[in-house]
Amino acid sequence: MLDDRARMEAAKKEKVEQILAEFQLQEEDLKKVMRRMQKEMDRGLRLETHEEASVKMLPTYVRSTPEGSEVGDFLSLDLGGTNFRVMLVKVGEGEEGQWSVKTKHQMYSIPEDAMTGTAEMLFDYISECISDFLDKHQMKHKKLPLGFTFSFPVRHEDIDKGILLNWTKGFKASGAEGNNVVGLLRDAIKRRGDFEMDVVAMVNDTVATMISCYYEDHQCEVGMIVGTGCNACYMEEMQNVELVEGDEGRMCVNTEWGAFGDSGELDEFLLEYDRLVDESSANPGQQLYEKLIGGKYMGELVRLVLLRLVDENLLFHGEASEQLRTRGAFETRFVSQVESDTGDRKQIYNILSTLGLRPSTTDCDIVRRACESVSTRAAHMCSAGLAGVINRMRESRSEDVMRITVGVDGSVYKLHPSFKERFHASVRRLTPSCEITFIESEEGSGRGAALVSAVACKKACMLGQ
């Protein structure tokens, strides 16, 4: 009897593995994704193909990295998701002549009506938060230079001027797309009239992360975010950046690689679950690469896999709870928690219980395998993109072996128990001629924006502006 049951459990697990095998990517698959990513990057950089390229390769006008001589107080704003952060950054000489960066910050959550109302409502709310922060720190009387981390696709015309191309991540505030974001912020500050600010720089969160990590390690020339969304930036040779005049030196390019796949480059790798996630998203047909990796989508992918296993009578005796059938019910943090389970399955059992399920031991094991399959594919897909960037940098610099540091931020990278190990191992397999160091950014977005502002202020002083 026991043997029969054991055989049935083994057969069930084997069927589960057959279904989950769809998520496995072979090294040849990853090399294919990497080569296609490089081709799209090239198209994004070139003037004649930029418009139709899915990977936009947006110039950021960040050319210099901090040298350690900029000092002063800077205000930093960070808008990239449902939370908005205001930070005071003091850049100065530390002990023994070292450079020191001290920060104080406060988080504000953005109400739904500000995210989806008008641009005026959104930026009025942001300036209200700045006003509140300055009151708390008794700094209303000071006109501070301000660095703005704005983590949406922007076409820069200068370091302090950028046109919002399109909202992502659930934002829909009308009247912002096609307009200068810094102008919208300046107008809102003017409307309030109770404080003055000098907006000197606007950067993407990947750029802010790279600059913040450069402060720790001067070989950091790539910034990457794996959180709600997924994106990367890197220092490109100016001669390859056709959208900006000049051939000397390097400029940081914001790849906006989340949109890779929007022209069909990933079609052969998309599964039924991916198509369902895409169809029910706020932007169907867009940001397809990001939807395979980002935390906004990972939990939902797992939920759809679990429903398939229920329908195949391989999980929960073929019956799903009402909660499990509800879109968004299986949160991405559950994926991390399930994979963090120590082996007694308590954590998995508790999560499934909150979803109205009474799982068996085998159910718990199957749910864990589903989570591992989805998150491992995410790590491997992400590795193909980064390997594409790094191999490109090595080739354009004609280096036999390139040493490089990548600064990384984002909740999936930082909080998932195995993502970074799987990701690092896969990147290294795909970049055999590179020695890569990964560092995690601390308060990256805010500190990085302030350091970019410090560079901009120093330049302005040198130019006598």
Score class of each variant (00 low, 15 high):
residue 411 S to R: 14
residue 387 A to V: 04
residue 55 V to N: 06
residue 408 V to K: 03
residue 12 K to G: 12
residue 314 L to D: 12
residue 176 A to W: 00
residue 197 M to V: 15
residue 47 L to R: 14
residue 174 S to A: 03
residue 162 G to A: 14
residue 380 H to P: 03
residue 96 E to T: 12
residue 358 R to H: 09
residue 343 G to K: 12
residue 217 D to N: 11
residue 24 Q to A: 10
residue 67 E to C: 05
residue 302 V to E: 05
residue 320 A to W: 12
residue 16 V to S: 14
residue 37 M to E: 00
residue 411 S to P: 07
residue 336 S to N: 09
residue 402 M to H: 11
residue 359 P to A: 15
residue 48 E to H: 07
residue 66 P to I: 15
residue 63 R to D: 15
residue 453 S to T: 12
residue 174 S to R: 09
residue 38 Q to R: 09
residue 306 L to D: 01
residue 348 I to K: 08
residue 19 I to D: 13
residue 178 G to W: 05
residue 18 Q to V: 13
residue 371 C to P: 05
residue 399 E to G: 08
residue 127 S to M: 01
residue 309 L to W: 08
residue 401 V to Y: 09
residue 346 K to L: 13
residue 118 T to G: 04
residue 192 R to T: 12
residue 344 D to M: 08
residue 25 L to S: 10
residue 194 D to P: 06
residue 169 K to D: 02
residue 66 P to H: 06
residue 164 L to W: 00
residue 388 G to T: 07
residue 438 F to D: 03
residue 371 C to T: 14
residue 71 V to F: 15
residue 148 F to A: 03
residue 287 Q to S: 13
residue 75 L to K: 02
residue 251 M to V: 12
residue 369 R to L: 07
residue 106 Q to T: 07
residue 239 Q to N: 03
residue 223 G to M: 01
residue 3 D to F: 12
residue 229 G to Y: 00
residue 94 G to Y: 04
residue 194 D to K: 00
residue 253 V to E: 01
residue 108 Y to F: 08
residue 259 A to H: 10
residue 258 G to E: 01
residue 23 F to M: 14
residue 74 F to M: 06
residue 145 P to A: 14
residue 263 S to W: 08
residue 52 E to R: 10
residue 389 V to F: 01
residue 207 V to E: 00
residue 416 H to C: 02
residue 96 E to L: 11
residue 393 M to K: 14
residue 360 S to H: 15
residue 415 L to V: 07
residue 461 C to L: 14
residue 340 S to Y: 10
residue 312 E to A: 13
residue 11 A to W: 14
residue 326 T to W: 14
residue 133 F to A: 00
residue 441 S to Y: 12
residue 77 L to G: 03
residue 192 R to V: 04
residue 382 C to I: 08
residue 370 A to M: 09
residue 273 Y to I: 09
residue 185 L to D: 00
residue 390 I to H: 04
residue 221 E to I: 12
residue 444 G to T: 11
residue 73 D to S: 14
residue 280 S to P: 10
residue 175 G to A: 00
residue 413 Y to V: 09
residue 31 K to A: 11
residue 456 A to S: 15
residue 214 Y to V: 15
residue 422 R to F: 11
residue 336 S to I: 01
residue 159 I to R: 01
residue 366 I to Y: 07
residue 396 S to A: 10
residue 257 W to I: 07
residue 385 G to Q: 02
residue 101 V to Q: 14
residue 131 S to A: 03
residue 186 R to S: 03
residue 126 I to M: 03
residue 366 I to S: 09
residue 136 K to Q: 11
residue 25 L to D: 13
residue 323 Q to T: 12
residue 206 T to L: 02
residue 294 G to E: 01
residue 212 S to L: 04
residue 269 F to V: 08
residue 438 F to A: 03
residue 19 I to C: 10
residue 264 G to D: 07
residue 101 V to Y: 09
residue 29 D to L: 15
residue 146 L to R: 04
residue 153 P to D: 03
residue 65 T to I: 11
residue 283 N to F: 04
residue 457 C to D: 15
residue 124 D to M: 03
residue 192 R to P: 06
residue 14 E to N: 09
